[in-house]
C-alpha cells in the first residue's frame, strides 16, 4: 500500500525479455517506455474498438482529448498532493541566446540543463478521465439521465519506471465516465464491473474482481487508501500476467462528489451529482492475452480471436 516501489518478479522480467525477442515490445532504453509491433497494436486497437462498441450500445457519447492537461486542472483535483510521485509536468526552454548555447553544450555532454527550463502550464495526462469532468461542467446542468462518456483509449503518464512489462510510464487507458445521481452512478459501476468481468473472461482470461486502493503518496496516502478501501470506492479486475501476483487490468472508481464539486458539475434537480469512472488498461490486457494464449496471435483459439474481433 502507499507509494513504495513495487517489487518486480523474475517471471515479469522474463516475460519482458520474451516480448522484446518476439518483437512485440521495442525497448527505448528507458524502463516502462516501449514501442509496439503491428500485431500488438492490432490487438490493442481491436480491444479498444470492442470496449467502445459495448459503451456505445449502452448510450455512451465518444469524446477525444489530447495527452496533456492544463496544469490548473491538475492543481484543482488534488493530484499534486495525493500522488505527487506519479505526476509529470511539461517544461520548456526559457532563456536568451547565451542560455541556449550553455544548455546545448551541457545537453551534448549529457549534463544537467534543467536550470534553463520553465513550466509550460501543461502536464502529461495522469488519468484519461480527467479532462472529461470540466468538459461536462461546460455543458451546463446534466440532463435527468446524467451523462455517459467514452473517452477512448488515451495516452496517460505515470512516473513509475519498472522492468515489469505491465508497469508502463506511458500507456493507453480506456476510460468510461458516468455522472448522475448517486443511485445512477452506483448502479452503473455495478453493471460495468460485471460487463468488464464478462469481457475479460470471455477472452479466456482468469479475471476476478477485488477491492483496491489508489497508490496515494506517503502518510496522508495511507489514510486516504484506508478510507477508500473502507468505503469500497475502488474495485479492480485482477488478471494473471506473469509471476504469482495478478495484475490490475481494469479499475472501477467511485468518486462520490470529488470531481463534481471540484469542477461544478450540476444536476437536473436538487439531487447531488456523483461521478464514477472505469479504466481499462489496453496494454495490460494485451499482455495478459499474449501471456495466456501465446506470443503468436495467429495461433490463438478462434473463439478468442472472434470475440476480440481481431483481424486475421
Amino acid at each position: 500500500m502507499g507509494s513504495e516501489v513495487r517489487a518486480v518478479s523474475a517471471e515479469q522480467v522474463a516475460l519482458r525479455d520474451r516480448l522484446i525477442d518476439a518483437g512485440h515490445l521495442i525497448p527505448s532504453g528507458v524502463d516502462g517506455v516501449y514501442g509496439h509491433s503491428a500485431a500488438f497494436e492490432d490487438l490493442r486497437e481491436a480491444l479498444g474498438t470492442r470496449i467502445s462498441a459495448e459503451a456505445r450500445t449502452r448510450g455512451a457519447t465518444r469524446l477525444t482529448f489530447p495527452p496533456v492537461l492544463p496544469v490548473r486542472q491538475l492543481e484543482a483535483t488534488g493530484y499534486l498532493a495525493n500522488m505527487p510521485h506519479l505526476a509529470g509536468t511539461v517544461f520548456s526552454f526559457d532563456g536568451d541566446d547565451a542560455a541556449a548555447a550553455v544548455q546545448g553544450t551541457r545537453a551534448s555532454a549529457h549534463e544537467d540543463w534543467s536550470e534553463f527550463q520553465a513550466p509550460t502550464g501543461v502536464a502529461l495526462m495522469p488519468a484519461a478521465c480527467y479532462p472529461v469532468y470540466p468538459a461536462l461542467a461546460r455543458r451546463g446542468p446534466l440532463p435527468a439521465a446524467g451523462a455517459f462518456i467514452d473517452a477512448g483509449g488515451a495516452w496517460v503518464f505515470r512516473h513509475e519506471p519498472s522492468t515489469d512489462p505491465a508497469r508502463r510510464q506511458i500507456f493507453h487507458q480506456h476510460e468510461l465516465v458516468r455522472a448522475g445521481t448517486p443511485e445512477t452512478v452506483l448502479q452503473w459501476r455495478a453493471q460495468w464491473a460485471q460487463l468488464g468481468l464478462d469481457l475479460l473472461t470471455g477472452l479466456g482470461l482468469e479475471a476476478r474482481l477485488d477491492r483496491a486502493n489508489d497508490p496515494f503518496f506517503g502518510r496522508r496516502g495511507r489514510l486516504l487508501a484506508a478510507n477508500q478501501r473502507a468505503q469500497e470506492l475502488k474495485l479492480e479486475l485482477l488478471v494473471p500476467i506473469a509471476g504469482p501476483e495478478p495484475t490490475a487490468c481494469a479499475s472501477f472508481n467511485h468518486h462520490l462528489d470529488h470531481f463534481s464539486s471540484t469542477f461544478a458539475i450540476t444536476g437536473a434537480g436538487d439531487d447531488p451529482v456523483h461521478t464514477a469512472c472505469l479504466g481499462f488498461g489496453h496494454e495490460r490486457i494485451v499482455l495478459a492475452l499474449l501471456a495466456r494464449h501465446g506470443l503468436d496471435p495467429d495461433r490463438w483459439p478462434a473463439e478468442v480471436q472472434d470475440r476480440l474481433g481481431a483481424p486475421r
Binding site: 488534488g78 496522508r220 489514510l223 486516504l224 478510507n227 477508500q228 468505503q231 462520490l256 470529488h258
Partner: peptide
C-alpha cells in the same frame, strides 16, 4: 470527506 480527514489528522 476523506481528503478533509487527512487535514484533520
Amino acid at each position: 470527506t476523506s481528503f478533509a480527514s487527512v487535514n484533520v489528522m
